[in-house]
Computed example of a mutant assay.
Amino acid sequence: MRNIKLTLEYDGTNYCGWQRQINGISIEETLEKVIIDLFEEDIKILGSSRTDSGVHARGQVVCFKTKSTIPTHKIPGAINSRLPRDIVVVYAEEVDMDFHPIYSTKGKMYSYRIINRKMEPALMRNYYWHVGYNLNFEHMQKAATYFIGEHDFSSFKSQGGSTKDSIREIYSLNLTKDGDYITVTIEGNGFLYNMVRIIVGTLIDVGRGRIPYDSIGDIIKSKDRRRAGITAQAHGLYLEKVYY
Rank of each mutant, 00 (worst) to 15 (best):
I115M: 12
R168S: 13
M124H: 13
R227H: 09
N174D: 15
R50D: 10
S162H: 13
I102Q: 15
A228Y: 07
I43F: 03
T185E: 14
R168T: 12
N80M: 04
E93W: 12
A92Y: 11
G236Q: 15
P212V: 01
L31T: 09
G179Y: 08
N116R: 00
K142E: 10
S81R: 06
L239K: 14
I230N: 15
I204G: 07
R82G: 09
A92G: 12
L38W: 11
G59P: 03
K74Y: 04
G207P: 05
I220K: 04
F39T: 04
A228K: 02
G24S: 10
G149A: 03
N3A: 06
D86I: 00
V196C: 12
S68V: 01
I230D: 15
R125L: 00
H130W: 08
E138L: 01
L135F: 03
H235N: 14
I87V: 11
G161Q: 08
N126C: 04
T105I: 10
H73R: 03
G132W: 10
R113F: 08
E32G: 10
V196Y: 12
I75R: 02
T66H: 05
K44I: 06
M97R: 14
I211H: 07
T69F: 01
T183W: 04
Q19Y: 03
S111P: 00
Y91E: 15
V131L: 11
L237N: 15
I25G: 10
S166M: 13
Q159W: 12
E240D: 15
I182W: 05
Q233F: 08
V61R: 10
V242P: 14
H151V: 01
G209M: 05
T7W: 06
A144H: 04
Q233E: 15
V196E: 14
Y193E: 11
Q60P: 03
S172C: 03
Q60R: 03
E187R: 10
F137N: 08
D205R: 04
L173F: 15
V95N: 15
R50T: 07
G160V: 03
Q60L: 02
A92E: 12
Q141S: 07
S81F: 05
E40V: 00
T72G: 05
S155Y: 09
A57H: 05
I182C: 04
D218C: 00
M140I: 05
S158P: 09
R50W: 05
K33M: 09
T185M: 10
